[in-house]
Amino acid sequence: MTNILDSGVRDGFRKYGIMTIFGVICIIIAIITPNFLTSRNILNILRQSSIIGIMAIGTTYVIIGGGFDISVGSTLALSAAVVLGLQEFMPWGAAVVIALAVGSMVGLANGLLAAKAKIVPIIATLGMMTIVRGLTYLYTGGYPITGYSKSFRFIGSGYIGPIPFPIILLLLMVGFWQFNLKKTPLGRYSCAVGGNKEATRLSGVSVDFYQIMTFVIGGGMAAMAGIVYASRLNSATPLAGQGYELDAIAATVIGGTSVSGGEGSVVGTLIGVLILSIIGNMFNLLGVQVYIQYLVKGIIILFVVGIDSMNKAKKSRV
């Protein structure tokens, strides 16, 4: 009986806990920092969230599929460099397509290493993280690259009406991938693979294909984040995006995606990203040292994952 109760609490926490925490944080921040609720500040927060947010959508898929990807920061850097560098030779539209393809190829390599070569995903992507960072250095020669095209900068800095384009892109992506996750076979099978790979295999599903696809989505979305990054700064250094993978993972986990795979949501991840940005924003508005942010972020991650893990441990012991 307590068992059912426990899992009820856990599921409830999954579904509504994040919303509640998000709401409480917003209210507290709105009270202590009067500037927080201005539309300029809110748009600012959203725009800051857009790059990590787009990346974290891919991370969500990977983790739901039972994998892990720490190479996305490097992928962001490579695709940012590619999309700017190629503009010298071709229209920016074509460069964007190629950059997305490059990111997806990195994801494909990750997926093959994890699903076919059976390398533990965190190690497979650790290797790829280093390789891709190396490729970025080779491509850029170690120097920052700047773009040629003016119109390309719209992606990162443009507005549609009063709303910055990156925010629109982020929300579109969240909508698209959330729909895909819940309503298409790709999304369903990704969850199934992460929930129980062997049971899914024994149901006659090509589990390797779907697990690899989650990594491809992970790489592709990292590339898209890289394109927004490149467009916003109109410059890409070989060091771009370092540590972004950790923020993306943190946002995913805070957003309620199960670390062991099988369940999660893209909308939850969006909220996770916003929670992280808002906390950063609050500290900035309050003029608190930036270092404190790390402490707070870390504690939030441990708290959220801790509750989940403790519940699972308790359940398996019964």
């Binding site: 076979p185 369903r188 199934a192 929930g195 129980n196 062997e198 049971a199 149901s203 099988g262 369940e263």
Partner: peptide, 30 residues
Amino acid sequence: KVGLIQEHSVVSNCTLTSLKKHVSAGVISF
């Protein structure tokens, strides 16, 4: 261990072997 995905709903388990039957235009019909 491997008969069902224990953490998923009965519905998703029931249709795991035959999801195609419930998909039209790429979208699953709940």
